[in-house]
Design a protein around this nucleic acid. Structure first.
Lengths: 190, 190
DNA sequence: CCGAAATCCTAGCAGCGCTAGACAACTGAC
DNA sequence: GTCAGTTGTCTAGCGCTGCTAGGATTTCGG
């Protein structure tokens, strides 16, 4: 019996190794550089081993995304603590969101822009996704009710604004010198 | 002399043919289906012909993007006419923007989300890009000054919100039943 | 009419995600 | 202690990708 347990443990460790390697490779060289061959070489196993853990490359990306989602949720929660004013709390969460996206571009892409098969709508999405969304939705809802607006649409709009800024900023589509002005507009408006 | 002109004309026509074929293929089957082989087959030439017109596949995507950008600009300008109230005009432009993105997803991707080598910052970007941005920036600026906010950051924020909504909506990340509520929040806030 | 130039295609390279089938190692029963 | 059976891993290869080198064919200018 103990042997099976050891094997299962080793499998789990190797699976974690794959996810970590994929993430590191993506973060340092971009997702284009994350090929199954390079990934296999990194973990010092042959290619087919990847497919005994994941259904395909997309599944590996999704695993990285879930991991990143959990981290994002933690950051957002941390940013909102000790702030009673709803608008101030939401602004802090917004700053944390953009900081996360700027610091972990590959991770952010895996979560939000890559064609991963993660179910996002509320049905059976991983808990980490719900947690991250709630970390945005909670302060957004508070801010919306303070402004007398319907929280649901308000929340999605605010999230869209954050997501838009995060993605457009990367491609050089937004002028960096306007970062402060943009953020000021955000806090003035949301 | 006239022969050279005819040849140049034929070349231009074929280039247009390539761009049109790429766009149609992307719109009907997605950009993943736009391979150089399929594209070549569609225009009834061999693969290398593509490379006598464009530096590579990215350049073809960029050409489609520029074309789409010009169309987007026209739509946005049309939406804003005959509306004097700045906020109403901006709301109309926003609706037109989202309608365009929803109606031409592949085109929208080519312009804004695919890794195309288009220079977006003001230096020497194609005129179509400037025109499209101005079609957003002009009403946004009017709306910002009406609200007493710095137009520059306000414009980029509003654009980010639109871009975020357009992209998140596609992946099923936004709930369609909140479309109206989201738009109401937009007009209330911007 | 003939050399020169432009045009186009066949064939191929290296790399991609993914998989079939062979091989080795380890497990558990006798 | 030995042998069947399971499990794990690897080598080799398929069909596809973007892209390019080289040669054949057509067309042009004198």
């Amino acid at each position: 019996m103990a042997i099976k347990e050891r094997r299962a443990r080793e499998r789990a460790e190797r699976e974690q190794l794959i996810v970590r390697a994929a993430r590191e490779l993506a973060e340092t060289e971009g997702w284009d550089a994350v090929t199954t061959r390079r990934l296999a070489e990194r973990i010092e196993y042959s290619q087919p081993v990847l497919y005994s853990h994941f259904a395909g490359k997309d599944a590996i990306v999704a695993a990285v995304a879930v991991e990143g989602c959990a981290e994002l949720a933690v950051r957002l929660r941390a940013a909102a603590t000790d702030l009673d004013d709803p608008r101030a709390a939401f602004a802090a969460v917004a700053r944390a969101y953009l900081a996360f996206a700027a610091a972990n571009p590959a991770l952010y892409d895996a979560i939000f822009t890559m064609a991963n098969p993660l179910p996002f709508g509320t049905p059976d999405a991983p808990a980490a996704l719900h947690e991250a969304f709630a970390a945005i939705a909670d302060p957004a809802t508070a801010s919306a009710t303070a402004a007398g607006l319907d929280p649901a649409g308000y929340t999605e709009l605010a999230w869209s604004a954050l997501h838009g800024m995060a993605t457009l900023a990367r491609g050089g589509r937004l002028r960096p010198e306007l970062d402060a002005s943009r953020m000021a507009a955000f806090t003035a408006v949301f």
